[in-house]
Design a protein around this nucleic acid. Structure first.
Lengths: 107, 107
DNA sequence: ACAACAGTTAAGTATTTGCTTAACTAAAAA
DNA sequence: TTTTTAGTTAAGCAAATACTTAACTGTTGT
């Protein structure tokens, strides 16, 4: 009941470069499918399927308007990724410098 | 020559939960394969294959000692992930609170 | 009513993935 | 030297992925 269930895994959702690119696009704000698809050399159904995966991982939400579907970024699940990766932060150090600079600029 | 080349992709390497768990283990320090494999209900070859993937993604390095192979964490490639996910940081806010607390504790 | 448009769903396919068991290589112990 | 021990490599397989084209649903415009 807990094993590989529904599988709306964030990590697998962001494993695909096309899906990451879609998320990057959506940082500019919500967009209809056709506009999302435009920069990709790929059929519309392919994009639609990627959007489904992102939807199941809750990384995007849908809004229906007329015959258009606007997709909007929902970055909250990425917190999971951020939290995980931050466990490794201490190892590469640079992050701490960034914080140091912040403190310098604000002291 | 640039498309889906060698495919030593960090994002796909960390997409698998077993591989993430292995990396988590290795945060405690380098370990031989048998010890790495122990907590998993999976054959040794399966673990060996996961280690290969992590190796190709440069997330671990190998050290040979006698008949043992010690694997050691190399978290640098995770910076890629951290950098990407940090583009989304502004959206979920909590990170800023953490920084806020830090500043409070050190003012 | 009907054609065009926006998008999804269905069906099929080639490739990749995550495992298995069996066979192998190399070092240590007997 | 023979036998464990540690681990990788090979071969095979079922399931998942990332696409494709074709068929469908629903909305808008004529």
């Amino acid at each position: 009941m807990s094993k590989t269930a529904g599988n709306a895994n964030v990590f697998t959702a962001i494993a695909d470069p096309t899906r990451r690119a879609i998320l990057d696009l959506l940082r500019q704000g919500e967009q209809p499918v056709k506009q999302i698809a435009q920069p990709f050399e790929m059929s519309l159904p392919a994009i639609s399927q990627h959007l489904s995966v992102l939807c199941e991982a809750k990384l995007v939400t849908q809004r229906k308007e007329g015959r258009q579907r606007f997709y909007r970024l929902n970055p909250e699940p990425l917190k999971q990724v951020s939290d995980w990766v931050n466990h490794y932060e201490q190892f590469w150090q640079e992050k701490l410098d960034v914080l140091g600079n912040y403190l310098e600029d604000n002291s």
